[in-house]
Design a protein around this nucleic acid. Structure first.
Lengths: 98, 98
DNA sequence: GATGTTGACACCCATAACGTTACAGGTTAC
DNA sequence: GTAACCTGTAACGTTATGGGTGTCAACATC
């Protein structure tokens, strides 16, 4: 994975809120979260929590997995930037090698 | 989703550690984590962190996504058991309805 | 210029992963 | 029976993070 995956909050802002003309205040209320929670999410200050994914999926009639997958790609990319190096590979059974 | 997805720690224990005859103590050292961290993971006391997914993928030559997907399914299932109800669906543009 | 709205942020709290240390119970070997 | 393991877990601290409340500057509207 070369490029940093797009933050799901950005996608939510650009592809959902903006086209619908929704403000952060209104959207937060419809999602049932505080302004701060949504603001940090769409400004990439917070990652997508499973509960938030459920709220977004309910509000937009989409699957929570599609949103969580975006977050997972980003989280994994971030973790890969500082990947652990002190890992010793397990011994592989001979039957699996060929 | 009806059944509770299997915890990735259980899969790791049953499908990786047991077939290879690895102990928790040895495995923890090879993964570069403490014995407690691995013990809690395989006993379903802790969820799979992205960093742990990277360690396991390195040690077993598998993809971190395959492990994280297990955790995501479980996390989403858990969240769904107590799904938010105060979510107001967004107004849908007419063009999207048909 | 007073009022109301919006959004970014500081402050506080709860949760969780992780490490270290220590302890108790279980197994196996000698 | 005792020594050497392996295991689960409690207790402690550290760090990170999601969330709510409250504050305040920016902006619009009248």
């Amino acid at each position: 994975m070369i490029r940093k995956p797009t933050h799901p909050g950005t996608v939510f802002l650009e592809d959902v809120m903006k086209p619908l003309g929704l403000t952060i205040t209104d959207t937060a209320q419809m999602l049932g979260v505080s302004r701060k929670t949504l603001s940090e999410f769409v400004n990439e200050k917070a990652s997508l929590s499973p509960e938030m994914a459920l709220r977004i999926s309910k509000a937009t009639n989409t699957s929570p997995e599609s949103w969580l997958n975006m977050q997972q790609k980003l989280t994994l990319w971030n973790a890969s930037q500082n990947a652990p190096t002190n890992v010793i590979p397990f011994p592989v059974p001979d039957i699996m090698e060929g």
